[in-house]
Design a protein around this nucleic acid. Structure first.
Lengths: 206, 206
DNA sequence: TGATTTCACTACGGTCACGTATCGAAACTA
DNA sequence: TAGTTTCGATACGTGACCGTAGTGAAATCA
């Protein structure tokens, strides 16, 4: 069982307003440096190559500096995945086509170019084996999906789609080309593919 | 560098018709038992848990029996992936809708229920890091895609789809719900979802 | 029968990563 | 100044796994 983020207790629990703990304070920058290094290592080496030593070397810190903040490799891995997937805001442009293009294009760029996207295969593999990582991944995906589903629902309300349209199916169809090309067939993908996918789907349900 | 299948040299090179090597012959059943165990271990434990000891234990054989047939863990892993993905035949029913439903439903059952499908996340994660596994995965996916693309081309010739339809896009759209649900959102999927996806796509391009 | 090969099992050396401990220096409190 | 905590660096014990080697038994050929 991996602990549920009970990290950094010493740094937060004993802090009373006005009084500080003795000793050298922690370097606040180290947290971000470590997190960025962890994301880079996971993206470059996969889950098998995600070692604490590698993260420490890439971050330029000692291992103790990592273990002072995270209790184990598993916890660092989980938080790395948690934080590497920041939200994209709901575009809500008034046009369903534009909303879907923006959402899907944003996902495409994330998966194709960002460290978060490059670490997704590793996360999926971990999720297939470890329930906690699976929960993390599922929650994140559901959150992202709900964004797109709401855009589709707005399109239905505006009459841009037939009222019997299944929003979940539309979203899953849209994710297909991005997902398949970046992770399976390793074929090139860009905005034009996304636009073609959106238009193909809207042509059927519009 | 992982060797390109130079395995089992002793068992094949010295065999002349009519003459057999001395000594106890290899147990032919052991090959399949090991392969099945390897597939099961990869599916259950992921690439990180894919150890020769685990495969040997699951197969009920000694490690030497494995190393007599495969030169290394990497080679066994590669062949496990190679063989765990048998072809499905081209349906060619005369109806594009029926062809696509059969192809996609077959893929869905493979990914959802078979050992080959359960090991796909592990393979994708390995492919993201190791070029040789990436090549193996890409080749397999391209082969499968070409089946579906040919079905789409037949549909275009028969006039079931507009002539300007992009076959690759149709195939990638179709794969979307299957991959997203089985590997990312972990939502249930069955034949009805596949049928709805096929109909949604055909409605746009028909 | 004797030689040879494979069998399951066990043990071994080597390597690698985890998590801990220690070191001297630095930064802060009392 | 004395005490405490963090810093980067390094070393250590532990355990897991790889790949090899050895054991006695079983199966086959000459």
């Amino acid at each position: 069982m991996i602990g549920h983020m009970p990290r950094d207790v010493a740094a937060t629990s004993r802090v009373r307003p006005g009084s500080r703990r003795p000793g050298r304070p922690r370097d606040a920058r180290a947290d971000d440096v470590i997190r960025e290094a962890a994301a880079a290592v996971l993206a470059e080496c996969g889950p098998g190559g995600f070692t604490v030593d590698a993260v420490a070397a890439k971050a330029g810190v000692g291992k103790a500096t990592i273990y002072r903040r995270w209790s184990s490799r598993a916890e660092l891995l989980l938080e790395t995945v948690h934080l590497a997937t920041p939200d994209i805001e709901d575009p809500d442009t008034g046009s369903l086509r534009e909303d879907l293009i923006q959402l899907t294009t944003g996902m495409m760029f994330k998966m194709r170019d960002s460290a978060a996207g490059r670490m997704l295969p590793a996360v999926m593999a971990e999720a297939a084996v470890h329930p906690e990582m699976r929960e993390t991944l599922t929650r994140f995906v559901q959150h992202r999906r709900s964004r797109a589903i709401q855009a589709v629902l707005r399109g239905i309300e505006r009459g841009e789609l037939r009222p019997d349209t299944n929003p979940e199916l539309v979203v899953d169809l849209l994710a297909g080309p991005v997902f398949v090309r970046t992770m399976l067939s390793h074929q090139p993908i860009d905005e034009s593919v996304v636009e073609a996918a959106v238009d193909a789907i809207l042509a059927g349900a519009g």
